[in-house]
């Protein structure tokens, strides 16, 4: 069922910008269109590009914020990518803040 929804109406997670738009809903209570506009602005792309796998794969590689092939090569993955996403979206990410506290970087 999760896969049916993903194909029918889902944004696509880290294949696209789904995780980034979701973060704005979760952290700032932004409605869908507001969250999409905010993320598109920060990424300097159009709202339509947010759910395009081809463009977003390149954008995510350029910004080094993880793709579905996150394990390959020099790409950031997991918590590394979240450090970059927090900065990119001007957002506090709980696991990133915890990492900084635990490593006494902050």
């Amino acid at each position: 069922m999760a896969l049916t929804h993903m194909h029918a109406s889902g944004m696509g997670g880290i294949r696209t910008a789904g995780d980034l738009v979701a973060r704005m809903q979760m952290s700032k209570k932004m409605r869908l269109n507001e969250a999409k506009a905010y993320v598109a602005g920060k990424l300097k792309i159009s709202v339509a590009d947010l759910s395009d796998e081809v463009i977003m794969n390149e954008v995510r590689q350029d910004l080094d914020i993880a793709t579905v092939y996150g394990g390959m090569g020099e790409q950031s993955r997991g918590i590394e990518a979240k450090f970059r996403i927090a900065k990119l979206l001007d957002l506090e990410i709980n696991s990133v803040s915890r990492f900084l506290r635990k490593t006494e970087w902050r």
């Binding site: 999760a2 929804h5 109406s9 944004m11 789904g18 979701a22 969250a35 709202v47 759910s51």
Partner: peptide, 20 residues
């Protein structure tokens, strides 16, 4: 199978995702 038009996608959250 039917789907939204390009650009009308929304965000998915998952109740008990792990358990699926």
């Amino acid at each position: 199978f039917v789907s939204v038009q390009q650009g009308n996608e929304l965000i998915l959250t998952y109740d008990s995702g792990t358990l699926k």
